[in-house]
Amino acid sequence: MATFDGIAGAVREGELIAHFGNPLVEQRRLASGEALVPLTDRVLIEVAGNDRLSWLDSITSQAVSQLRAGDSTELLVLDPQGRVEHAAGVLEDGESVWLIADEGDAEKLTAWLQRMVFRSRVTVALRPEAVLVGFFAGGAAEARITASAPHQVPLIWRDPWARVQPGGHQYAAAADHPAADYAWSVAVVDDARSLRGPFAGALAAEALRIAAWRPRWAYEVDDRSIPHESDWIRSAVHLSKGCYRGQETVAKVHNLGHPPRRLAALLLDGSDVVMPSPGDAVLAGDAEVGHITSVGMHHEDGLIALAILSRRAPVGELAVRAGETMIAAAQQVIVPADAGATAEVPRLTRLSRRPAGEDPRHSR
């Protein structure tokens, strides 16, 4: 994993670069396309070989068989019950597919992919030495990335979350989805020492992700997660592609049922200067109805969070229990309680029971 040791002013939390002194100023620079974020908590995986696209298409949730050089998308690996096991950004460069995974998932995802190769002409390798940086497209940061490698086309993954992808579906009913301007990108660079500031830390990047309602494996996924509950079908699931593991559950919940949980955005009262943590309980009155998954301080909205709630959680005001402190929370519905009821299923006419042996032709 790249260490970014040469960047001055970095304030670290373990290996993670949290900020460079002022997270809110960094966040504004990042949102404007000016700043770069060292991504020490992402890892690159290379999938090479002639069968790489058709093979990935057959074992993951996304349709990737027709990707061309430079195309970006996102995929999930589901278990047989449709629960999310792994997630990755996908970038095809014409020779390899590059998967961008959260650090905690990368080794397990690589091992799973290697077990699934069988006779396919595919190789899978973890590339922990790769240097990954995040930025928002269209600004000075992207120009600096391009200038750092003048003799080659840089590898840049464009996050598909900004719009509903082909074959996807959006449950959020927001007329102006907050992801519309979420032009998040991740570049692979040769050497961290070639990068020039200004820089922003993980706190800035995470706050902007939360504001865009964007789920992430490291925070929104647990052993019960299905794609529907966090609206992940909009970017990572193709509903009409061929068979893959977990597809039956994806189709059933989408067409007939409702996910048992739903993702919501919370605007938190910051007057007590108490920031909750992932895992803190969300309450409706005295009843616990869910838990915080991600939390951040936004430069415009203040203290914000994402939370996984029970489908039956009320839509109104909630509270978050952070240690001994109760924090008022205004709820923004992302996935509605009736999400998934997207198909009109014809009902069979119920036949009345008749006494045994009675000929229906003679019934009155």
Rank of each mutant, 00 (worst) to 15 (best):
I17P: 01
G290W: 15
R127V: 13
I308K: 05
P198T: 08
D301M: 15
L195R: 06
E26S: 07
V282P: 04
W217G: 02
S58F: 12
R144K: 03
R127E: 07
A200F: 03
L56R: 13
S225I: 01
S58Y: 08
L56D: 04
Q247C: 05
I233F: 02
T146F: 14
S120A: 15
A141P: 02
D79A: 10
G323M: 13
D5S: 11
V131A: 10
F4H: 04
T123S: 15
A173L: 12
P23K: 05
L239S: 05
D223M: 12
G167L: 10
P314V: 07
D79R: 04
M116C: 13
D102T: 04
R209V: 05
R115W: 13
S310E: 15
G94H: 13
I145L: 11
I304L: 10
D79W: 09
L267I: 08
V37Q: 06
D286V: 07
L155H: 11
G257Q: 09
L348Q: 10
S352Y: 00
Q165H: 12
A183M: 00
W55F: 14
I17V: 12
G270M: 08
R163Y: 11
H238Y: 09
E229W: 10
R262N: 07
G279Y: 14
G201K: 09
A284L: 12
L36S: 04
A212M: 14
R361P: 00
T110S: 12
I210R: 00
F136P: 06
F199Q: 03
